[in-house]
Design a protein around this nucleic acid. Structure first.
Lengths: 167, 167
DNA sequence: TTAAACTTTCAATAATTACTGAAAATAAAA
DNA sequence: TTTTATTTTCAGTAATTATTGAAAGTTTAA
């Protein structure tokens, strides 16, 4: 396979994975493009390669910067902005985990707790509270594990995890 | 807060969480409804509570059964089908993890490997392969951890994880 | 200053995804 | 059988989400 062909295929694969995890396809593609680029890219480079509008590039690049996985880069003698993706994939994973945890898991935990306040002691209410409690417990467990992962080092994490887990 | 109000709020919260993780909102709501119901529900019960059409109920219930998190239940003297959600939340978590891993992570790992076959040895190609390799590594790590989680017991998992991780 | 280079915003529109409802298929009862 | 209850399918439509493109805003340099 040719390099450019492979890069394109990668960009598209990544885009469709993103879609099934609730991330905007273009955002994922812009990120993928920056990730495999050897040099910083301008808005125009991105527009051209992905065949998308200036507005779309702008919005998605902002979102990526907001997520902390893409940075501006100034190029000497150039007035416009260039962008670059952090090439450390483990950092990328940790950053995404951190953001989604904060944006999506934590708010749900709050609501689950709040719902425990039902002032009713019927059997039905008891069962409901039981389900909520179980949900909170599992969600908290996952949340804690993610917290640990965010702070951990990749190799160390896996080796320790494996050690802990094998019987 | 009243019980019914709380149940509804829970169903909606769950629905919007699902949306941000790429899961159909109605599917999540149907599941949430079955989860907090004390008795098996028919298609009609679901239609009525969530105010959705018969076709919609049918499709989403099928999907939930396909995911292995909802089951048919026969009620004596009744001709129609009833549905029930597994109340064990840890099992639910494991089942969802298992399915998404199979449907989404594993196919991506395959593509990443396949893309390594670029027949080009330029510096640029080397860098590309490096990025792919790193992505595979992290994705594999996550995949392995999920594998372990699927096989593990909840309490045991968390306590061992915590032990392994502290310091 | 003013003009040019560039970025941001957002209303209009396109693309995608989800839902409805009625007809067709299937299964159980008469 | 035939009738009736129930489930499934899917073309049409609705709702949601993403994208465009041009105007407004901002920054730099002449």
């Amino acid at each position: 396979m040719k390099l450019d062909e492979a890069k394109l295929k990668y960009i598209h694969t990544w885009g469709s994975l993103a879609t099934s995890w609730g991330i905007n396809k273009t955002m994922a593609q812009v990120h993928a493009l920056l990730l495999v680029s050897t040099k910083p890219l301008s808005a125009e480079d991105i527009m051209e390669t992905l065949q998308i509008s200036r507005g779309n590039v702008n919005m998605n690049v902002r979102a990526l910067i907001d997520w902390g996985i893409v940075n501006k880069e100034f190029v000497v003698g150039e007035r416009k902005e260039f962008f670059i993706a952090d090439k450390d994939i483990w950092e990328l994973f940790k950053q995404i985990t951190k953001e989604r945890k904060k944006r999506e898991i934590e708010p749900v935990l709050k609501v689950l707790e709040e719902l425990q306040q039902v002032d009713d002691n019927s059997d039905e209410a008891q069962q409901f509270k039981q389900v909520l409690g179980d949900l909170s417990k599992v969600t908290n467990t996952v949340n804690n594990i993610l917290d640990k992962a965010i702070k951990a080092d990749e190799h160390w994490l896996l080796s320790n995890f494996t050690k802990a887990i094998k019987k």
